[in-house]
């Protein structure tokens, strides 16, 4: 199975691990992430204003590219997933938006939301199946207590993303179980890390992330996994506690599949 893959800016720079581990794991699990040519930055943030046209264009170009390749579009980064999936939904639900975007882009054939958008985790759950992932595991995470950190972008708005129960998700917990680890449920796992406000005020983001980390530690997590580079950065930078490292979920996957050995997961 081949998917159109939208990496996003951060995965080409500070979050190379998220990208590379994702790609090699995909191959090991029998599917290919084929990078969209000439993709542009999604903007990192979906602007919900109905008159916001320009900020939708880069996402629609990527979606249209996938449509032409007759492939589903897959992302690894939570932010890209959120922006592109919400944009796709607007192209289906909002006829005014659809008309204006198409007028602007002048594509060969108007784009009307035909492409399906999946996060890598959804591919594992719904296409590959966690049972198959489990079978492929070579180095199970025995005895590791892993906390999943979802943040906001994978889950909300729940009605549009339809990723998982936005208040009590379990996809990453099932992922951890498939890799042989023990998931730790802590309720701060879907609260915001502070996001982009880190740029203006490092302390502000730190207040949010320390609450998240303290909750995860209190509930017994050895380390956390996330799908978002900004979440990872905020959690690492601003944590009052340094006990709990944060990894990308693909790093954990690549290790469990025996593709990239990591001391910390042993």
């Amino acid at each position: 199975m081949v998917y159109s893959y939208y990496p996003g800016c951060t995965l080409k720079n500070t979050a190379k691990e998220l990208d590379e581990c994702g790609r090699i794991s995909a191959e090991a699990l029998g599917f290919t992430l084929e990078e969209i040519t000439d993709w542009q930055c999604c903007g990192g943030q979906y602007t919900s204003g109905k008159d916001e046209i320009v900020t939708k264009l880069s996402s629609v170009r990527a979606l249209d590219d996938a449509k032409k390749s007759e492939q589903d579009l897959v992302t690894l980064c939570s932010a890209c997933y959120n922006v592109i999936k919400q944009t796709n939904n607007a192209m289906i639900e909002d006829s005014d938006m659809q008309m204006k975007v198409n007028n602007y882009l002048k594509l060969d054939e108007p784009y009307k939301g035909e492409t399906s958008v999946y996060h890598f985790l959804e591919v594992l759950r719904d296409k590959v199946g966690f049972d198959k992932v489990k079978e492929a595991v070579k180095a199970p995470l025995k005895g590791k207590k892993v906390g999943a950190y979802y943040g906001c972008l994978l889950l909300r708005p729940g009605k549009v993303l339809q990723f998982d129960d936005p208040e009590n998700p379990k996809i990453m917990e099932d992922f951890i179980k498939a890799l042989g680890g023990t998931p730790v449920i802590y309720n701060m796992r879907n609260e915001c890390c502070g996001g982009y406000t880190i740029l203006e005020d490092t302390d502000a983001a730190g207040r949010n992330t320390s609450k998240i980390l303290l909750n995860a530690e209190d509930m017994g997590a050895d380390f956390l996994i996330t799908a978002c580079p900004l979440c990872q950065y905020n959690l690492m930078q601003n944590s009052l506690s340094e006990k709990t490292p944060i990894y990308y979920f693909t790093e954990l996957l690549a290790h469990a599949l025996g593709l990239r050995e990591k001391e910390c997961f042993k």
Partner: peptide, 12 residues
């Protein structure tokens, strides 16, 4: 708005 259970059973 939000309830966070702790390991001692208390709720934040």
């Amino acid at each position: 708005g939000k309830v966070v259970p702790m390991s001692n059973g208390n709720l934040q």
